[in-house]
């Protein structure tokens, strides 16, 4: 049996009203231990009010080599931004 503890990604909500943010990772045998360890490793000084743990192997990530085809098409879609549209000067707030 492979007895190395698997890797978990840790997400912490620093206070209500904010989203969970990726804080780092750690090794733990299971999800309960991952939560307990995350508390000790990442929230020793009140950095969080809620923790998510996700097994790193369950995350599917985009490959930076595909960044061109994934993200470049958005660059020439200027009409998705309000500044693309010309308004008469009299209209102050829109």
């Amino acid at each position: 049996m492979d007895n190395n503890w698997p890797l978990w990604e840790i997400f912490v909500r620093s206070k209500n009203g904010l989203e969970h943010r990726h804080f780092g990772s750690l090794h733990a045998a299971d999800e309960d231990m991952a939560l307990e360890n995350a508390r000790d490793v990442y929230t020793r000084r009140n950095e969080g009010v809620s923790i998510w743990v996700v097994k790193s192997s369950d995350i599917t990530a985009s490959n930076p080599e595909n960044n061109g085809e994934l993200f470049e098409p958005a660059q020439d879609k200027v009409y998705r931004h309000p500044t693309f549209y010309k308004l008469p000067d009299e209209i102050k707030h829109m």
Binding site: M1, N3, W5, A29, D30, M33
Partner: peptide, 16 residues
């Protein structure tokens, strides 16, 4: 600490 790490993995497998 090896036996502790092993026991934790065995416990995790059992829970699963």
């Amino acid at each position: 600490g090896a036996w502790v790490r092993d026991a934790a993995m065995a416990h995790a497998a059992k829970k699963e």
